[in-house]
Design a protein around this nucleic acid. Structure first.
Lengths: 99, 99
DNA sequence: ATATTATATTAATATTATATTATTTTGGAA
DNA sequence: TTCCAAAATAATATAATATTAATATAATAT
């Protein structure tokens, strides 16, 4: 492998692997998949994934902190949506290959 | 979400997230990336990733067990290559989006 | 003001993944 | 056979993540 090319790949791999780690949990992946079409409320996501409210809240907080999700509040409900265009593209590719 | 669609997605997410977990470690991702072009020896992979022989061997064994890699022996050297067509496609997609 | 519902945060524990070191196996060469 | 290099395995220590439970906040309704 040419050293010049090599170095660039190594760096990219570090950042990309961090992103993939975020997608690599079943709940986080389910959340992202279900948000592909449209934004959804915490309640809906929680039911969909079949986990506790607390757990979901933690997942959502983490994904938001990582820049994967954005949220907005409406009355006493919070709605989440996918924040990153590239992540959407990646999810589409995954769907195409595996679904 | 329609229950029929839902159930299929939930199942897929479980298996896909397992795969993504495997790609989500920097070393494993580097190995896969460097094997996109052609097969490579353990030695070369170890140097490329900058980890110990033992650690690399463990990663390779795991990836082989998971069906991501195949290997062949030639004299006292072992060469690894990507085993799964779908994984190759996924890696290509990742490259396209992030590199 | 109090109660209720939705969501978030914190803390404790359990689980799993990774790295390290030492040892073993494999196949070939002296 | 004995020796050597390459690779694999085993055992253990360490670090990272996930899970669970309890508590806290936010907004609204009574």
């Amino acid at each position: 492998m040419k050293p010049a090319v090599t170095k660039a790949i190594l760096k990219k791999c570090d950042s990309v692997s961090r992103l993939l780690k975020s997608l690599s949990h079943p709940v986080r992946l389910k959340v992202l998949c279900s948000l592909m079409e449209k934004e959804r409320g915490v309640n809906e996501l929680t039911e969909f994934c079949g986990i506790s409210q607390s757990a979901m809240s933690q997942f959502l907080a983490r994904m938001k902190a990582e820049g994967l999700l954005e949220s907005r509040r409406e009355r006493n409900h919070v709605y989440y949506r996918v924040a990153d265009q590239k992540v959407s593209r990646l999810l589409s590719a995954i769907r195409e290959i595996y679904c």
